[in-house]
């Protein structure tokens, strides 16, 4: 039996713009994944701890507030501290090209910009875990 892909979709920061995060969570569910959605206003500590306890394969952060350069590195650092650096991190939001480059250098797997088709996100995730097929 193929194993299931487990994804954590998280919305860090103080803003309440969760439309994108919810749409993506639903789309990934419909693409056959187990999606853990943790709600709004998450701190990096909460996100990392949830990711570890849930043993997810991948974490998606939705960031529209401009705080991406603090949030992504912090979450990745905490995952490492908790012995879970194998968890892949990706994101979505309004993130300038220069920052996308810097985030990818830090190890963020992929940043999806505005107008992304949710099918592309699902394919990207499935492609990242060939052992699940």
């Amino acid at each position: 039996m193929a194993r299931m892909i487990r994804v954590l979709v998280a919305k860090p920061g103080l803003d309440g713009h969760d439309r994108g995060a919810k749409v993506v969570a639903n789309a990934l569910k419909d693409a056959g994944m187990e999606v853990i959605y943790t709600g709004l206003h998450q701190t990096p500590e909460m996100i990392a701890e949830s990711a570890v306890q849930e043993d997810v394969d991948i974490v998606g952060l939705s960031i529209l507030s401009g705080a991406h350069m603090t949030m992504f590195p912090r979450v990745m650092e905490l995952l490492k501290e908790k012995g879970a650096e194998h968890i892949v991190v990706f994101g979505g939001g309004i993130i300038p090209a220069e920052d996308v480059c810097r985030l990818e250098e830090m190890g963020v797997a992929r940043i999806f910009g505005p107008g992304t088709d949710t099918g592309d996100i699902a394919s990207f995730i499935k492609g990242s875990f060939p052992d699940t097929e």
Partner: peptide, 10 residues
Amino acid sequence: KRSEGEVGRC
């Protein structure tokens, strides 16, 4: 603590 990174941003 929760204001970190968000002060004066938007």
